[in-house]
């Protein structure tokens, strides 16, 4: 069963995606040179961009027919740019939850999600003074904690060292498989792709995309 599909989508008449299908509860990696439309693809899937031509489907339904906010909460995108508010890890969780109109997460839950993302930090730790890699893991933990149906990660390990990157992806993969979350990851790390991908979508720029 395909949870996400895209048919002949064109974005701003430059980026063309012929046909892409994402299988339910699979781990799919998106690779390709910069400018080939990897981030655009993820944004088309969660509706923060609309294709100028073509269609995008979620669970078989054209996403234009689905409430945009509801869609984004189910097809959640952790963007390339980490954004954390000024304050502690816990305050960041609370802030994001408040923005989404949700109750504060339990400290135990925060701890669990941090652990999945290889973040053995105290929840009172201040994000302002953390390193880029630490901030990236906190950000991933926040995104993961929303428990979407599809989790899309845009270069989630760009600020991490090789080993940590692998551990983080491995843990997230296990977590997603267990909770029936479909995982879609943009990554440049060939090793990680080889180790953890069920499927690979290779974007080649202007014209083609192939589903392998």
């Amino acid at each position: 069963m395909h949870i996400l599909s895209l048919r002949n989508a064109v974005y701003r008449s430059v980026t063309v995606f012929p046909s892409i299908d994402i299988e339910y509860n699979s781990v799919t990696f998106v690779t390709g040179p910069s400018g080939s439309g990897k981030s655009t693809l993820l944004r088309l899937f969660n509706g923060t961009l609309s294709p100028s031509q073509g269609q995008v489907f979620y669970c078989g339904k054209d996403i234009e027919q689905i409430d945009a906010i509801a869609l984004r909460r189910q097809v959640l995108l952790a963007g390339q740019q980490v954004y954390l508010f000024s304050g502690s890890i816990e305050e960041n969780f609370n802030m994001y939850y408040e923005y989404l109109g949700l109750d504060k997460p339990k400290p135990k839950a925060i701890e669990e999600y941090l652990a999945i993302c290889q973040g053995p930090f105290a929840s009172e730790a201040l994000c302002d003074t953390m390193s880029g890699g630490e901030r990236q893991r906190v950000y991933l933990a926040i995104c993961l904690s929303f428990m979407p149906k599809v989790l899309m990660l845009d270069e989630p390990t760009s600020a991490l060292d090789e080993q940590t990157a692998r551990d983080v992806i491995k843990n997230i993969r296990t977590h997603c498989k267990k909770n029936e979350i479909t995982l879609l990851v943009v990554s440049h790390d060939k090793e990680i792709v080889k180790l953890y991908a069920d499927h690979v979508i290779e974007l080649k720029g202007e014209e083609h995309a192939t589903n392998c």
């Binding site: 969660n46 984004r72 995108l77 963007g79 740019q81 954004y83 923005y99 995104c143």
Partner: peptide, 17 residues
């Protein structure tokens, strides 16, 4: 801009952002 993008990606309403 990053704060706006991030909140939007996670499904916050534009008005609230």
């Amino acid at each position: 801009q990053h704060r706006i993008d991030s909140l939007l990606n996670l499904g916050a309403r534009p008005k609230k952002i």
